[in-house]
Design a protein around this nucleic acid. Structure first.
Lengths: 185, 185, 185, 185
DNA sequence: AATGAATGAGAATTCATTCAT
DNA sequence: AATGAATGAATTCTCATTCAT
């Protein structure tokens, strides 16, 4: 009669938080376990390795963005402007409630060079993000400019999250979002 | 045939490279030592701890930016526009030749939460950067907008360095820089 | 066929032996581990640090003395003379079977100046020892002389253990104990 | 034109102090060097190893005891009682000014088991001490009792030094010395 | 599934010692 | 003699991972 203390999803959620706040290397399996009310060994019943857990975290976040945010770009019922407003609002909402910035961004800098598996996931995430924005902007800006703009929006967002996290001050991030919306008339 | 003694500066340079490419935690004292042609223990002859070495790396970079880039903002012999062009060009040049992005940015995400000493240095660096840009922009944009714009430039730069490093593609970063210069007429 | 799991107590016992024979600094966690049939790292599953293990050793010994020896002083069913005889006999028995003298005494000289935490424990141990003896001697000698005698007995005991250990010869230590008993008529 | 910063004797004196206060293992060559105003490497111009330096320290102290204290026992111009009084006074004076107890006693407990060379020196020292006392006591107590008494005096002295050092209180040590003198009529 | 003891590789750091200058 | 850089072995401690219960 097994005692189920937790499930994959809650381990992922806890891990995301810890990875975001303290980074990949500084977050130990023991820390994650304790935060889940588990012994560190028990996590291995759910994930085969720390790397696999980290990948699950990235995929979990990516999934959310795909379903709830990137998808906005491909809706038929909204104007580009409305899409951009909604998109930006959602992104804004996600990162504002966020504790330690953007896990994908953090991992991009900390471990993408040491971990090809995770790097692939991170690249795909950012490319999907850019693709979605490009799709929104194309009608108004054309292919070329839309592509460049999309990239700049992601850059600006990531950069301002970095500073928000570092300064512990959301103001610049919020302002950034206002600027984005003004890209479309 | 002079015996080449390792000095602090060369250890710092090597360390900066390794820290940028692999991150703080993944870069071991042994790795640094080997890259310097030293035993791992020997580094402690020059720096009391890994943390102290990391701080020295941050200060070294900060010093370069202060003297060679931020100082541009306070020169009397240039117009704001020329300052901005030169400033951006220098920033661009520094990060283009750069191997693993911006060490300060990387550390901001990886260890600022676990290491107050390093965090302070990182914050100071980014604030100096913003202050310099603000100083350049004030004559044309006024205090308020200059401040916001300065923050957005730093954000955009950091974000695009992140993507450049992740994609291993400098194009977006270069485009970013063009956009910045157009901020002033 | 029960699997024998190493527990705190057996690690403590092994450590006491090694610390007594080779001292604190010369006894490494690896040595202790090997003597317990463990890898060096495994000890940290039971004790957070070498210092904590050492403290546990001191407390373990102190506890034995408190329960089995010092307590004699406070019994109601024995005359002072009988208390002193029993007390001395027990002390004698403990240190005679002992491998490397008195751990508390050894640590007092080796690390009490470098380790406040351990020092406190050591001081308390010796003061309890003196207090017990004082309590035994007071009826016959009065407060003042009892106090001085108690201190001298502890001194003499520690000193003769030192010489017993150094010379590897128990004779002087045994004689010492005879002398102590003659203090009371 | 060599710069002589120091000589063997002063290194020995400094080392004795440090060894007494912090023990053998906790006293590093760097610490000793710094206390002498030297780099740690420079000590090796005077002593071939830490062990040799430690041995020199023991011999230095032993020499002092031999010449200034133990010799009293063999003088023709004093009565046994006067010898004992002077002997005890000198011992008392030496250890009262002393910073960290008796180096020979400290080393006896810390490293005699790990270091045969030093152990021999320590044993010889204590045996000379006992022999001197025995010589003083023989006329009054006879061979047998003198031997036992001598041993007990050394024990008591060492033990009370241990407690003096631990408690940082010289009182018990002083009292101890009064007791010794009363051994002879 | 959960535990907790154990592993073993490897991390940072220390330190006696060496050696070219 | 003195220096200070370098060594290399050893030490404490960490941590992802395994496994018997």
């Amino acid at each position: 009669m097994p005692i189920i203390k937790t499930d994959k999803k809650s381990i992922i959620k806890v891990s995301i938080h810890l990875f975001k706040v303290n980074g990949y290397s500084s977050t130990t399996m023991a820390t994650i376990g304790k935060a889940c009310g588990l012994m560190k060994g028990s996590i291995y019943h759910h994930f085969n390795s720390k790397e696999e857990l980290a990948l699950a975290c990235l995929k979990y976040i990516h999934e959310y963005f795909k379903n709830d945010i990137f998808s906005i770009a491909y809706r038929q019922d909204l104007s580009p402007k409305d899409k951009l407003i909604l998109f930006t609002k959602k992104v804004n909402a996600y990162f504002m409630k966020s504790d330690g910035g953007c896990l994908l961004g953090n991992f991009a800098l900390e471990i993408s060079n040491t971990n090809p598996l995770l790097k692939d996931e991170i690249i795909t995430y950012f490319q999907s993000w850019e693709a979605a924005l490009e799709c929104i902007l194309i009608p108004d800006l054309g292919k070329e400019r839309a592509k460049a703009q999309a990239n700049q929006i992601v850059s600006a967002t990531q950069g301002s999250i970095l500073l928000m996290r570092l300064y512990n001050d959301p103001t610049p991030f919020t302002i950034q979002n206002d600027t984005i919306v003004k890209l479309l008339p």
